[in-house]
């Protein structure tokens, strides 16, 4: 390459916006619109009146925003004969969520700890079965589980659904904690043993205080996972404890007469709110959860 004296290359190379670069940004922009659009539609629809929905574009902003649909969705929307709104489901979901999350994380942590540091006999059988269980469609387990829970009178009860969530959260939780503890230096555990610690002492005094990051990841995974569950809630929770997702689907898909799309969208946003808040608050931790939970079923 030759340059005339007037344009002797010196200093930074002149920046040109290349065609490739423009295409790249264009693609990302279009993708961003694609991913955002449904949320935008949900939001504007929930703020419109029904006549406006019936005659306008779904993408248009509301001509006169109303929060009436939100009030209806929250406290008046009907599922079958009940017209108490989606708030009932919200409470149910929390009632299911809290004990299920605590139980599954606790059990998973103990499992992971026992399997990685203590290597008990036949521990591998537990691990392998749980691992396989993470991949098998739930449909295989459901019917016998219904029978078993009926047998001990827990079918269609709150403890019943909590047990089910604990059972099916166990594989991913066990694996998550096991992999984390496997990566911990074994010398630490040996030092604890030499200092006379037993199984539980080492767990509570030594291992658990060092499990902060993985506990956060487990919390994110379980809160979003259990909140978003539909199948187990539908089958095991019973009429009194239907979680929000099931209620939402009932509100939207079984209403008789004209569908109130604005109410439906308000209810949908309300249902999505908890996992979305978890997602936006946790940020990079959520991504870590995906990476750590790469075997999630």
């Amino acid at each position: 390459m030759t340059h005339t004296a007037a344009e002797t290359p010196r200093g930074p190379k002149p920046q040109r916006m290349t065609a490739g670069r423009i295409g790249l940004y264009a693609f990302l922009l279009v993708s961003a619109v694609f991913f955002l659009l449904p949320f935008y539609v949900m939001l504007v629809t929930s703020l419109k009146t029904m006549p406006e929905i019936q005659h306008g574009s779904i993408f248009a902003l509301p001509s006169k925003a109303t929060i009436e649909p939100w009030i209806v969705a929250w406290s008046k929307a009907c599922t079958g004969a009940n017209c108490d709104g989606i708030r009932v489901g919200l409470l149910n979901s929390f009632e299911i969520l809290v004990p299920s999350v605590i139980l599954s994380i606790g059990l998973g942590a103990i499992n992971g700890y026992a399997l990685s540091f203590w290597r008990p006999k036949a521990g591998n059988i537990v691990l392998t079965t749980l691992l396989l269980g993470a991949f098998i469609p739930y449909q295989v387990f459901i019917y016998p589980l219904v029978r078993m829970l009926s047998f001990v009178s827990l079918y269609n009860t709150l403890p019943g659904i909590v047990i089910v969530h604990t059972i099916f959260g166990l594989p991913i939780m066990t694996l998550l904690f096991r992999n984390y503890y496997e990566a911990m230096p074994a010398d630490l555990f040996r030092a604890g043993r030499v200092d006379g610690g037993g199984f539980w002492t080492i767990f509570f005094r030594l291992i658990l205080p060092m499990s902060g990051p993985i506990l956060v990841v487990a919390l994110i995974l379980q809160v979003t996972g259990i909140w978003n569950d539909f199948l187990f809630g539908l089958i095991f929770a019973g009429r009194q404890h239907l979680p929000m997702t099931v209620q939402l689907n009932n509100v939207v898909n079984t209403t008789m007469g004209t569908k109130a799309y604005n109410v439906n969208m308000a209810a949908t946003i309300l249902t999505a709110l908890v996992p979305l808040v978890v997602y936006f608050v946790s940020g990079r931790w959520f991504v870590r959860g995906i990476a750590a939970g790469a075997v999630k079923g």
Binding site: M1, H3, T8, P9, R10, G11, K13
Partner: peptide, 22 residues
């Protein structure tokens, strides 16, 4: 990396703006 100022010459050519491969 981009330079903020100055020149780089290799084998008698001013390569300040050239790609590494050239």
């Amino acid at each position: 990396i981009d330079v903020a100022d100055g020149e780089v010459w290799i084998s008698g050519r001013n390569v300040t703006w050239e790609e590494p491969k050239d």
